[in-house]
Design a protein around this nucleic acid. Structure first.
Length: 262
DNA sequence: ATGGTTGTTTAACAA
C-alpha cells in the first residue's frame, strides 16, 4: 500500500498537479490539506477518472480543508473539530483491513511565537493540546496512521538552520514539545525518519518568498506521516517528492509518501 | 533588521 500526504494550497487551482501525481505515483491513498474549497466545488471528476472514486471531503469556503482520496471504498469516515471552531482541519477514514487514518492540518500559528501576544499561536498550541488529550484515550495496540501538514519541524535537521529558526514559528521549543506530546500520546512512530537518519537534512516545504527555492534551500519538514507500532513492521520505504516543488504552479509543500508491505 | 510570494476574494487576511 502506498500513501501520500500533500498540502496542495488550493485543490481547484492545482487539480492538474494532483492528477499528475496520481498518474505518476499511483498511491492507494492521497491525503490533501488546504484544499480551500467547499465540498460542492471540489474537483472530483478528474480524480474519479483516474480511478480514485472514493473521496472523503471536509472543506469550507476559502480556508483550510482536508480530503482523503482512495481507489477502494472506506468502511467508515468521520470528521473532528477542535478549539470550539468549525474549521475543516481533521478528516478520519477507516481503510480496508481496519486501519484508522487521520488527515490533519494543524494551524500555522501566525508570525509571533507568543500565545499572549498572538491569538493564532495560542490557537496552534491549544489545538495540539486537544489532539494530545484525545489521542491519549485511544487503544495503543490498534493500527493507525496520522498524516498531514502539522506545521512544525521537530528535529534540528528538519530545518535549514536550527539556530536561526529557534524563535521562528514552526520550530520553537514549545511547539516541538507539544508536537512530541501529541506523538507520544498516540504512540506514534515517525515513519519518514524511520528511513532517513535524523542527522540528514530533510524538508517538505520551501517558502514562495525566495527567488530561487532550490539554490537557497531554506526548507522545513512540516509534513509528516506517523504510524502506530502495529504498522512499523510493515513499513517498506519513504519518499519526499522534492522535484514537485519545480512543477508549474507548484504548491509550496511537496508530497510525502510511505510504502507499506501489509 | 527587513522584505520577500501566493491564494482567496477583490482589500484585507492567511500562510
Amino acid at each position: 500500500m502506498r500513501l501520500i500526504t500533500w498540502n496542495i494550497n488550493s485543490v481547484r487551482l492545482r487539480a492538474e498537479n494532483v492528477c499528475r501525481l496520481l498518474a505518476e505515483a499511483r498511491p492507494d491513498i492521497l491525503c490533501l490539506q488546504e484544499t480551500k474549497t467547499p465540498n460542492e466545488l471540489f474537483p472530483r471528476d478528474p480524480f474519479h477518472a483516474l480511478g480514485y472514486e472514493h473521496i472523503h471531503m471536509h472543506g469550507m469556503k476559502g480556508y483550510n480543508g482536508v480530503a482523503i482520496l482512495a481507489k477502494h471504498p472506506f468502511p467508515s469516515v468521520a470528521t473532528r473539530a477542535w478549539c470550539d471552531r468549525r474549521d475543516c482541519r481533521h478528516a478520519i477514514a477507516e481503510l480496508p483491513g481496519g486501519i484508522e487514518l487521520h488527515n490533519i492540518y494543524v494551524p500555522a500559528g501566525g508570525d509571533i511565537p507568543d500565545p499572549d501576544e498572538n491569538p493564532k499561536f495560542a490557537h496552534k498550541l491549544r489545538f495540539l493540546d486537544e489532539l494530545t488529550e484525545w489521542f491519549a484515550t485511544h487503544d495503543r495496540a490498534r493500527s493507525a496512521i496520522a498524516v498531514g501538514d502539522l506545521n512544525i519541524a521537530p528535529l534540528e535537521h528538519d530545518v535549514w538552520s536550527h539556530k536561526q529558526l529557534l524563535k521562528v514559528v514552526s520550530h520553537t521549543p514549545i511547539e516541538v514539545e507539544k508536537l512530541g506530546a501529541f506523538q507520544a500520546a498516540g504512540g506514534f512512530v515517525d515513519a519518514v525518519r524511520y528511513f532517513v537518519p535524523s542527522d540528514e537534512k530533510l524538508y517538505t516545504w520551501w517558502s514562495y518568498r525566495n527567488r530561487d527555492w532550490a539554490a537557497s534551500d531554506r526548507g522545513r519538514r512540516l509534513d509528516h506521516i506517523w504510524v502506530t507500532p502495529a504498522l512499523v513492521d510493515g513499513l517498506k520505504s519513504a519518499r519526499v517528492f522534492r522535484e514537485v516543488r519545480d512543477w508549474d504552479k507548484a504548491s509550496d509543500h511537496v508530497p510525502v509518501m510511505i510504502e507499506f508491505d501489509l
